[in-house]
């Protein structure tokens, strides 16, 4: 059901929602809190951000999802058109590529610098499986791959206009995402409190291992886990909207965009699993 004030007579969308502005203001306040190391300012920023996100989801939940071609249409004679939102999401994913490259690159550099013979504070890195449970995380990797298949099948279902399958495939993707996070939480809990892999210490049974193993492990898998959490929230939103009948054969761009983000998180994990667990 379209809001009368959001669609004009020609069926064209107005982009007059105030909620993205509220989200941006919340993020701005939050960053001030981080930079000034002030928890109260950070909490205020997070609250404004959450209110903005909640408001946006609340408004959007009632609207059909529709592709917006915007500027791309103006240059279509040179370039075949791609929805402006999809283009923006791909640009956002490039910033994510840089973000993860920085985290992984920094961790890998620390590892190389402290394991080469003659380096300051030299200590060996843990062998695969020495500290981490490779088989458990291998199973978790399989779960994430399964969730990518269910996600892409959900998109294929709504492209055919199949309302029943899009709901079940989205729900399956959401549940698989939650399973991945639960297994990761279990792994963290066991490693940190059980085995003693902390930000400064390594487990007693692997006492010769480099002290940087813990912080680099938690930094790399932690930022990925936070991205999976964001993906699960986005999946919860599209699943809810699908169960309300918010997507049709012609209007389902949100499913595609959330899917792109979800697959990207899977791609990052493919590399992280190899780098952190297998090498």
């Amino acid at each position: 059901m379209a809001h009368p004030d959001s669609v004009d007579e020609g069926g064209e969308e107005h982009h007059g929602s105030p909620w993205p502005v509220v989200i941006a203001v919340g993020m701005g306040i939050g960053y001030v809190g981080i930079v000034s190391a002030s928890i109260p300012i950070l909490v205020v920023g997070a609250a404004v951000f959450a209110a903005g996100a909640g408001g946006w989801v609340h408004v959007d939940m009632e609207r059909p999802s529709r592709a917006f071609y915007g500027l791309a249409a103006a240059i279509e004679s040179r370039f075949p058109r791609v929805s402006a939102r999809k283009l923006a999401l791909w640009l956002f994913l490039v910033t994510e590529i840089m973000f993860f490259s920085a985290i992984i690159g920094a961790s890998w550099t620390l590892r190389l610098r402290t394991t080469t013979p003659g380096a300051a504070f030299q200590a060996p890195w843990a062998r695969p499986g020495e500290i981490l449970n490779v088989l458990l995380t291998g199973a978790n990797t399989f779960i994430l791959i399964c969730s990518s298949v269910t996600m892409v099948e959900a998109l294929a279902a709504i492209e055919r206009g199949d309302q029943r399958k899009v709901r079940y495939f989205l729900l399956a993707t959401l549940l698989l995402g939650i399973t991945f996070l639960s297994i990761q939480a279990f792994e963290y809990q066991k490693l940190y409190f059980g085995d003693g892999l902390t930000f400064t210490q390594v487990p007693a049974h692997a006492s010769e291992v480099n002290k940087l193993y813990g912080p680099t492990f938690y930094a790399q898998t932690g930022v990925h886990g936070s991205h999976v959490t964001a993906g699960v929230l986005a999946l919860a939103y599209v699943t809810r909207k699908a169960f309300k009948g918010g997507f049709t054969k012609d209007n389902h761009e949100a499913v595609e965009l959330v899917g792109l983000y979800w697959h990207f998180v899977d791609v990052v994990w493919i590399f992280l699993f190899t780098i952190v667990y297998l090498i």
């Binding site: 069926g11 064209e12 071609y69 249409a73 294929a156 054969k249 012609d250």
Partner: peptide, 24 residues
């Protein structure tokens, strides 16, 4: 305008989707 844009996006999408090798 937005309607035509959607129309460009939609036709044949289902046809293509069926041929995509997701399971392999």
């Amino acid at each position: 305008m937005a309607e035509t844009a959607v129309a460009v996006h939609a036709p044949g999408a289902g046809e293509i989707a069926r041929k995509r090798p997701y399971i392999p």
